[in-house]
Design a protein around this nucleic acid. Structure first.
Length: 118
DNA sequence: CATATGACCTATG
DNA sequence: TCATAGGCCATAT
């Protein structure tokens, strides 16, 4: 991560993820959109991987409601365990986004966060 | 510079 | 609901 723009992007992603409330989940695309552009869905994963501070990364899942790690990985197990521990059911490998999707509060996210991307 | 690889997403049938 | 196709983009090699 040498590019300064990328660093800004990652910083916004880290801030957003840190604000996901307990017992709720957000998707990679959702975070990317809030961070400024919905095209960076893939970059969210990278940003979480190199986060310099502890973050509730387990609250970030894909658009289908699934844990994005390979089901056989230890990362998958860790995330699954943490979600269940927060009271988020994972049935058939997926979370009900209709019920558990996190939505930012207006006060936390001023209008510029939702402005059309340039 | 060219490819390949993901903690991805949407549109479409 | 599932599968496929095409798109996206930071990183790694």
């Amino acid at each position: 991560m040498k590019n300064p723009d990328t660093e800004d992007l990652y910083t916004r992603i880290w801030t957003l993820v840190s604000q996901i409330t307990r017992g709720r989940v957000a998707t990679y695309g959702q975070i990317a959109t809030l961070a400024g552009s919905r095209r960076h869905a893939r970059a969210v994963g990278y940003a979480l991987k190199c986060a310099p501070m502890p973050l509730p990364w387990h609250r970030v899942i894909n658009a289908k409601g699934e844990i994005a790690f390979p089901p056989t990985s230890t990362n998958y197990e860790t995330q699954h365990k943490r979600l269940r521990r927060e009271g988020i059911p994972v049935v058939n490998g997926r979370v009900d986004l209709k019920k558990y999707r996190w939505t930012p509060r207006d006060r936390e996210f001023p209008d510029e966060y939702f402005a059309a991307e340039t």
